[in-house]
Design a protein around this nucleic acid. Structure first.
Ligand code: SF4
Ligand code: SF4
Lengths: 133, 133
DNA sequence: TTTAATTAAGACAATTATTATCCTATTTTA
DNA sequence: TAAAATAGGATAATAATTGTCTTAATTAAA
């Protein structure tokens, strides 16, 4: 039902990177400014990197920056990168996990709802989120 | 993000009771037919009883039955009775838990989404769910 | 070429949430 | 009074989440 704290951290983090535009920033800065435990954030950034949302560079002068335009990153992208599909019930993600799914009349509700939620989240880009209004 | 197994069990259970109309049924029957661990189900039924969704009677000839017309029970009712509010992020339920909420531009998204999801779930009554189609 | 700063990766610990069971008490009807 | 049912509480088992730590690899600058 809820996104995890980790996902919220990831969103804060990408929000910050979006505000920083092209600039490279280090984990420590994001952690302090966005109030995220530093080494936990480091893990989160690894996942965001693998998902192609941010890019990293190592060594002195290294750090993180967005891998794409904030217009091309949605809340859904972050959620899926960190938590996986946004289904409200397991059967909306994989209907085979439940032996009732073939006849269950509730099952389609979860499928519809998943679509609705995904549509909504896909529309919320970080472009929009940084233009506070 | 997801409803818990317990909530799914609760829904199955109310679905079964809806099909049974006025009849009183015992925990064991629901457990077997709906494939729910019996003593876990007993707990769930307690919560549904406290929430006024089902009513219980003790002793021989005792058991459970719906406390209202299936038309008056929605999926949202069950979810709220078992899991609490259907917010996708903690701040959509209580904005004070996050020190950013006053200025955060993501916060309103969770609030809107919560409304949208609740609206959707409120419309799905057990009346509709038992009329398979 | 060495050093310092940085991320990558993996193991692991701590905490919290979920799922499940069990025992005893209470209620009710036959 | 006995049997059949739920109520309530304690508690165990499992799984998920959150968080930390250590070591390795990379890079730029001194
Ligand atoms: S019972 Fe129906 S809703 Fe619940 S998991 Fe199975 S298919 Fe999905
Ligand atoms: S950071 Fe924004 S979205 Fe995340 S919890 Fe705080 S207010 Fe809600």
């Amino acid at each position: 039902m809820q996104i995890t704290r980790q996902t919220d951290y990831a969103i804060r983090c990408v929000l910050y990177l979006s505000r920083m535009r092209e600039r490279v920033v280090v984990v420590d800065d994001i952690a302090v400014i966005m109030d995220i435990p530093k080494s936990f954030l480091a893990k989160i950034l690894q996942r965001l990197t693998k998902a192609g949302i941010v890019k990293s560079s190592r060594g002195i002068k290294g750090g993180f920056q967005l891998a794409k335009n904030p217009r091309q990153i949605s809340l859904l992208d972050i959620i899926e990168a960190i938590q996986g599909p946004a289904g409200m019930n397991r059967c909306a993600i994989n209907k085979d996990i439940c032996r009732f799914s073939k006849t269950c009349t509730v099952h389609p509700v979860w499928v519809e709802l998943r679509q609705k939620v995904e549509q909504h989240l896909k529309k919320v880009t970080f472009q929009k989120l940084i233009k506070l209004k």
